[in-house]
Amino acid sequence: MPCAPPTQRGTMIGKGYTRRKSLVALAGAAAGFLVMAPARKARAAVQKLFTSTGAPKGYDPTQHKWLMAINIERCIGCGLCVEACKKENHVPPQPTYFRTWIERYIIKKPRPGQAAVQGETVVDSPNGGAGGFPPCEIPREEILKAFYVPKLCNLCEHSPCTQSCPVGATFDTPDGAVLVDPKYCIGCGFCIQACPYGCRYFNPYTRTADKCSLCYHRITRGLRPACVEVCPAEARLFGDLKNMGPDDPIAKLVRTNKLHTLKPHLGTEPRVLYAGLDKEVR
């Protein structure tokens, strides 16, 4: 369709400006003004979905680096930590969902004639240790040694779970916890497969991945994680690497014990230290 010839009558308008161009520019500017306000509103509405209010202030995550130490010799397998964790963090009650759990390792004596230092290793963890362990069925004379191993998120320095998350929903915080952002988690389960320690589970109620958060709502309020709080035997110790004095329980444990971490060959560099760990523990 042929365009109408530009009008050249106006004396106020310089050469190259036409009525049509001016009107279009004016309409564009007006539309821009009109669009700006709803755009800001729409943006605010979209972002409100992600925003929170009322979080306790005064906690600076860059001023802390949390770690945990577990003294296997002290653990008595009472299972109070497992129950406390479930109560504190609303972990589903079924015996397949745990943020922390206890394993009982029973190493049998070698069979007669078997040229080995030790026999079969039997590991059990009925209900993760919640409610205590039932009496051991293996007769005492067959047992070479036995011990409990509490397990939890290993607070990896190079965490495979955060690297595998496709949407940035799980991350290492500056203070050393590994958290899940439930508003961003799409429940794909990659992180659950990626964790070499089996420390994650799929929460069937929230439809997101869940894991030990190091009781982030407690440690930011100056409390200890629930499992550490209730441990009657001081088997679980909790500390801050950036504010650690020589009298700190973890500093003492490090001085007086041989330490080990789980699966060090994976290069995850866990910040959960185990004192007195046996080679049978994986």
Binding site: R43, Q47, L49, T51, A55, K87, E88, K183, Y216, H217
Partner: peptide, 30 residues
């Protein structure tokens, strides 16, 4: 429109998620 506020402040995640994780009240009083 879709980048949430505080995304990228501390890393490739929402910094606000840290605050949200602290919102829950403790069950064990200490």
């Amino acid at each position: 429109f879709l980048t949430p506020p505080s995304f990228g402040e501390l890393g490739f995640y929402r910094a606000l998620a840290l605050e949200e994780a602290t919102l829950r009240s403790p069950v064990f009083a200490g």
